[in-house]
């Protein structure tokens, strides 16, 4: 699978968050902290499962703690994805 870029990961995350909040994509900031979104643990796990399915690999449980914004998480995903694509 081709590596996911940071831009693609950002767009994916912002699309999901905007959908849940019922707002347009451009109303969601890349700097937003996930814990400001009022996602409960059920929603967070469902979103994580959907994202892992999209990426094709699992994310560790502390990922959101170390990368708590859309921008940080997307950068991490891009790096992880490119390492996996290079190793494949």
């Amino acid at each position: 699978m081709a590596a996911v870029t940071a831009r693609e990961a950002e767009d994916w995350l912002i699309g999901k968050i905007a959908h849940r909040l019922g707002v347009a994509d451009d109303e969601v900031s890349r700097e937003v902290y996930f814990d400001e979104l009022d996602l409960d643990s059920t929603e967070a796990l469902i979103l994580a499962g959907e994202m892992e399915n999209w990426l094709g690999f699992e994310l560790s449980t502390t990922t959101l703690w170390y990368h708590p914004t859309v921008k940080d998480l997307a950068a991490y995903i891009a790096e992880e994805s490119s390492q996996r694509a290079a190793a494949a």
Partner: peptide
């Protein structure tokens, strides 16, 4: 109890946990 567009892989993660 769940939104109409809840994806199965998302629910699978919740179930596995």
């Amino acid at each position: 109890a769940l939104a109409a567009d809840t994806p199965l892989p998302g629910l699978r993660k919740l179930y596995d946990t």
